Simulated scan of single mutants.
Amino acid sequence: MPDNQGFSDFFYDAPDGLRLHARVYGESNADHWPVVCLPGLTRNARDFHELALYLFGQAKTRRRVIAFDYRGRGESAYDPDVANYNVGTEANDILCGLSALGIDQAAFIGTSRGGLIIHVLGVTKPSVLKAIVFNDIGPEIEAGGLAHIRDYLQKSPRVKTVDEAVAAQRAAHGQDFPALQMGDWERMVSAIYKERDRRLVPDFDPRLPETLKDMDLSQPLPTLWPQFKMLKEIPMMTIRGENSRLLFIATVEEMTRLHPGMKSVSVEGQGHAPFLETGALPGQMAEFFDSAESQR
């Protein structure tokens, strides 16, 4: 049963034995698809807390929600081998967690890296994908946007207090997120950091940014268009931050051409990646899932 925060903690073992974690909101309901939430590169299940509370507790169709912590993030164990912090391994971890939970099909929400993992799942186990929401991610990533993320991770300042953390996040991302209010920044900070030795530290393996250091971001990145085309029969919605540096409008337009039924949403005053609990987004996603499920 969920605790008084609205969720229960679920721990399971990855294929290589690493102890991994997910948050589970709500009860299993065979009549409706659950929603699986996959976070960004350095983020964790806490990013989806407010959205999950809405989807399982307030939406017209109440759905069970599972938000995963990848290995090396949140409550999941750190991997002794940095090379295992890759999309393929993480996709297998998600499938392992779903199997442990008895879930063989679900609607998926993928933010940034989570969307890349969905592309992998579309190749390795497409039957698990019943509906897809891509949050500011597609089959083509702009190298400049990834360079911005890498630079921030490399230069991320040390902070001791929530106020310092909020100031650091606003300094790094405020230009791309003029629509955010103080409460939004505070929720962001509560999801990113954890307290250790009386100071706040990012809640991921500090070696994780090493996976980006050798990438040549002066050149276009490899694309996933062949994998995206394999998703053409799956109901899809793409959310793009108006100021996104990672997902360009031209990419969304090409996604729409290849997937004519795709619903596209632009979020004003936000960049990479939009806060999914803000504005009309929770209701729009809930309606999308209901519509997709009614057509199955």
Rank of each mutant, 00 (worst) to 15 (best):
R170Q: 15
L153I: 11
L221R: 14
E233H: 12
P139S: 12
Q181M: 10
Q169F: 00
I192G: 00
E254G: 00
I118F: 01
E287T: 12
P202H: 10
P274E: 07
P220A: 07
P206M: 10
C37H: 01
G6Q: 04
P34I: 01
G6A: 09
H259P: 05
S112C: 04
Q5R: 11
V166Q: 07
V189K: 06
V65G: 03
A292T: 09
R207H: 02
R71G: 13
N29D: 15
D93G: 13
H49G: 05
G174R: 08
S244L: 15
A91Y: 03
F289C: 05
M215C: 04
E164F: 08
P282W: 12
R43K: 12
N92I: 10
K130R: 14
P260K: 06
D69G: 07
K232I: 09
G138F: 08
G261F: 00
A168I: 03
M230S: 10
T124G: 01
H49N: 02
T256V: 10
L101D: 13
A91S: 14
D81P: 09
I103L: 10
D197R: 15
E242S: 06
F275P: 00
P139M: 05
R196Y: 03
W225K: 00
E142M: 04
F288P: 15
I149P: 00
E293K: 06
D69A: 02
S218I: 06
R196Q: 10
F10G: 01
L116Q: 09
Q295M: 10
N44T: 08
E254Y: 00
D214Y: 07
L41Q: 08
C37S: 02
D203H: 04
E90H: 08
K194R: 15
E142V: 15
L38Y: 11
D31C: 12
K194I: 05
Q154P: 00
I118R: 00
I234G: 02
G283W: 03
A147S: 04
V267C: 02
S291A: 14
K60F: 09
A167C: 10
A171S: 15
I149S: 01
D151R: 03
L246H: 00
L208T: 09
P39L: 00
L217W: 13
H119Y: 02
E195R: 14
Q284K: 07
V82G: 03
N243H: 12
W185C: 05
G122M: 09
E210W: 02
G26F: 08
P209W: 11
S112F: 05
M1W: 08
L180A: 07
M188N: 12
K232Q: 09
T161S: 09
E268F: 15
D93R: 13
F275V: 13
A106L: 05
G144H: 12
Q105L: 04
M285A: 06
V267S: 07
L121D: 13
A273H: 02
A273E: 08
V166I: 15
L231H: 05
A107F: 04
H32R: 14
